[in-house]
Amino acid sequence: MMCLVFVVGMTGMSFAAVPLYRIFCQVTGYNGTAQQVDQYSSVVLDKRIKVTFDANVAPGLDWEFKPVQPSVSPKIGETVQVMFKAHNSSREPVNGQAIFNVTPLQAGAYFNKVECFCFTETTLQPGETLEMPVVFFVDPAIVEAEETKDIRVLTLSYTFFEHEKPASDQAAALKTDTAGRKS
């Protein structure tokens, strides 16, 4: 009986590991995970930090994706909006979801996003180009922590992946016969 309880418990933990790890990373900034916040910084230092941007597309996603500008140098604590541009080069609508991280990894806990396209799924129609905002600030506490006080450049990196089609789209696709007609 003890072995059965152990096996069932370990199976349950294996399914819970990914969501629990994601929550842990979001709360602690571990592994370069930026923080999602609802408010702006109330403190702005008279010290700048350079933030560079990296944009990638996963294999199989026929999109072009890039930052509108390669970098910004805001004051630490200053709220900044930057734009990224995505273009669907395919002949069909595509849903995408961006994942992100911040390097150096120890700086992730101090990178705060107020608004980001990466919080939701993005759908682009064939040939559509979309500018998407990211609103962020670097927490002034970054200059106090021993492991981050000497950091002068951060890199915010995104990778877009194709997201599964909604169930209604999948059902419609199943109803389409080989000649392309609805049944």
Rank of each mutant, 00 (worst) to 15 (best):
T129V: 12
V51S: 09
F119S: 13
Q39S: 15
K66Y: 14
I142T: 00
P67R: 08
L156P: 05
W63Q: 04
T79S: 14
S89G: 13
Q97E: 03
T155R: 13
V68G: 07
Q36S: 14
C116Q: 11
V143G: 03
V80D: 05
Q39W: 10
P104N: 05
E78M: 09
D62N: 15
E144C: 10
Y110M: 08
T52F: 05
P133A: 02
T148E: 00
A107L: 01
K113T: 05
R91M: 14
F137Q: 02
V80Y: 02
L156D: 11
K66H: 13
E144P: 06
P67S: 12
V135G: 03
P74Y: 09
V80L: 07
Y158H: 03
V68R: 04
P126N: 13
R48M: 00
P74G: 01
E147L: 05
N95Q: 10
Q69F: 09
F100I: 00
T103L: 02
N112Q: 15
E147G: 02
N95E: 09
E128G: 11
K50W: 04
F160W: 07
S89Q: 15
L105Y: 12
D38C: 02
V94D: 11
S41N: 09
P133Y: 01
Q97W: 08
G60H: 06
W63V: 08
